[in-house]
């Protein structure tokens, strides 16, 4: 049994126009000390899924079903009060934009100490000392002075460090980082990613990192889960997914971002069209309207039948959701030569 085990997670939002299936049957496992990267575009359901793990959806507007087993306890079955007590203590979260994620009217130190005092019966003074200790741990210079600053007096990178301090102050066993570096500059992003890896080793936490940046995933994650239209479309170890992807959407992600270290001859192949509507998702495979390989599938399977998540051609726990019979061959022969001609020769 894994430390975190999510089974068939569904998050549906009933609206006047119909049910928005933001997450529609998501399953994955994660061990302590490991990192899972969840990749997808806006509206793919990645943030909605992690909010469900934290129990942040309000019952009044979201229907959450499935199983979220954290250390053997199903987070969807426990009471609201029990879930609240676990929030911030067992499961903590870091958000994308540290400026808006911190309350502008309260001092940074107070906000961090507050997170500690919710779960520990200690004096304000002790909590403050603990906050300074955490600020020091995440590399904020002069923590005993900066603890009394307001968020707007911090730089972007320092704010994200403070958010990390806030998230880790209770020593959580699961840390969810939702686009933790998207709002930051590259050199600051590098600092924050280093810090996260460093802290993960110390705290032996399981980490979920949500991002649209495959580069971040490549550096941080042991496993990758690619989401599209509320569903997992490819799942496996990072190395496997990045070197032998078997789902055309993943190919599209790889081919549509230019790389700093890429062959200058590499071409930019955009994914045509727009991300799907979750209210009215396309029939069959959600990706078929934008897929450039659908003609290789016999009949109109892609239009009519939603593919199951099936093992990839190379095994090793690699899962993909695609009707293509020989995705490995298509990738080697058609996709790779376009996006990374230099790699073809190496193989």
């Amino acid at each position: 049994m894994s430390f975190l085990s999510v089974r068939d997670l569904r998050v549906h939002f009933p609206t006047i126009d119909g049910v928005v299936k933001a997450t529609d049957g998501l399953s994955f496992d994660l061990e302590r000390g490991k990192t899972l990267g969840i990749v997808g575009e806006s509206g793919s359901g990645k943030s909605v899924s992690t909010s469900a793990i934290l129990g942040l959806h309000r019952r009044t507007n979201a229907i959450v079903s499935g199983e979220i087993l954290l250390d053997g306890v199903d987070l969807l079955k426990i009471s609201d009060e029990d879930m609240r007590r676990r929030r911030g203590r067992d499961v903590a979260m870091i958000f994308q934009d540290p400026l808006s994620a911190m309350h502008p009217y309260y001092r940074v130190g107070n906000q961090i100490a507050e997170a500690y005092r919710v779960h520990h019966d200690v004096s304000k003074k002790a909590a403050r000392a603990r906050a300074i200790e955490m600020l020091d741990r995440v590399g904020i210079p002069q923590p005993d002075r900066r603890v009394d600053d307001y968020p707007h007096q911090f730089s972007g990178g320092m704010r994200q460090r403070a958010m990390i301090a806030m998230a880790l102050i209770n020593n959580p066993s699961l840390l969810i980082a939702d686009e933790p570096t998207t709002a930051l500059d590259v050199t600051v992003q590098a600092q924050i990613l280093d810090l996260l890896q460093d802290l993960q080793r110390d705290f032996d936490a399981a980490v979920m990192i949500i991002t649209h940046d495959l580069g971040v995933v490549a550096e941080m994650a042991h496993d990758v889960l690619v989401m599209y239209g509320g569903r997992c479309v490819e799942y496996g170890s990072t190395k496997e997914i990045l070197t032998h992807p078997e789902m055309p959407y993943t190919w599209g992600l790889l081919s549509s971002i230019p790389e700093v270290g890429a062959d200058p001859e590499a071409k930019l192949l955009p994914i045509p069209g727009n991300p799907p509507s979750l209210l009215n998702p396309p029939s069959g495979c959600h990706f078929h309207p934008r897929c450039t390989h659908r003609d290789k599938v016999p009949g109109d399977l892609c239009w009519t039948v939603s593919p199951e998540l099936t093992p990839g051609t190379r095994g090793d726990g690699h899962l993909k959701r695609c009707h293509l019979a020989n995705p490995d061959v298509v990738y080697e022969r058609e996709v790779l030569p376009e996006i990374a001609p230099d790699l073809v020769e190496e193989r």
């Binding site: 007590r85 929030r87 203590r89 979260m93 958000f95 808006s100 994620a101 309350h103 507050e114 806030m166």
Partner: peptide, 26 residues
């Protein structure tokens, strides 16, 4: 709907402090 209210909830704060301390002041 502000992000910092989500942060406050993610910390595990009870409804009361989230509403009176974080939401109302803003």
């Amino acid at each position: 709907t502000e992000d910092y209210i989500r942060t406050a909830r993610a910390k595990g704060l009870k409804r009361g402090p989230v509403l009176f301390k974080h939401t109302m002041r803003a």
